[in-house]
Amino acid sequence: MVHGHDALDYITLNTRTVKGGLGIARRENLEAYLFLLPWIIGFLVLTIGPILASLGLSFTDWQVGLGMNFIGLENFRLMVVEDDLFKKSLGVTFNYSLMALPAGIVVALAMALLLNQKVFGIGVFRTIYYLPAVTSGVAVAMLWAWIFNSEFGLLNWALDLINVKGPAWLLEPRWALPAFAVMSLWGAGGLMIIYLASLQAIPQNLYEAAQIDGANVARQFLHVTLPMLTPTILFNLVVGIIAVFQTFTNAYIMTAGGPNFATYFYVLHLYNNAFGYARMGYASALAWVLFVIVLVMTLAVLRTSQYWVFYSGEKE
């Protein structure tokens, strides 16, 4: 947890230092905790219990309906030594996150920049680009199964126009994962509107000042837009890591992890153990391994953030 402190220092550095004596600090402490109450109550009453329960379960052999025995670290040993699918699914998830996460962050930013213009009908465009992010469930899965079909699908039809012969996306192990990444880009509208909100908050006078200095569009982007967006990029990166490692729904509906385990995501393995085989103890152990992995990666990102994240509140 020492690392946690350090890492967080880097993103909280900007908060102004308290001037004045102990009294003011104490008052601010009290105020802060009053503001925090909604989170503290929810955390203590609704959140922490179930989370600790799952941590406890990870040391048991509990199968829902059968007895529960404390088995120490046995679940973790099984994972590493016997469960081939644990390694397989972890690999799939890492590969996928390397494809989907950077692409998502960049594409969503590009979309947001495009939609942050004063063009006629921009409200309609914003709605169109965001819509895919809100369609969910089986209908979307079926849509994409159709789009990815090798002979009759829309994607290969489009590729054919530029004389590229597309593969059988969801049926060839090496293309299935990239296909999922493409699909996730279609839903990048969620990240996009987070960027959009931040873009809207950049004061116009910064651009005006840059223009007076003779900065062209590219320089304005590099010296005004991008620095002002870094807190949002950090947010999207951290939230993206957490989310991408929990990828589940489309694989569950569309491929059930196939072909040949090419889309067998970690959380699919976890879900199958929890609800397919009622093996709740083992599923909890899987969850806590994932927790540690994601936590370490998040801390690593937070740690680097001091070098590239800029908060406008800092320049007083």
């Binding site: 072909p259 397919g276 085989y277």
Partner: peptide, 18 residues
């Protein structure tokens, strides 16, 4: 049954799918 069901399609794929 369910656990076999989950691994079988992947296992049989080399013979019948690819």
């Amino acid at each position: 049954e369910k656990e076999i069901e989950d691994v079988y399609p992947n296992l049989i794929a080399p013979i019948l799918v690819t």
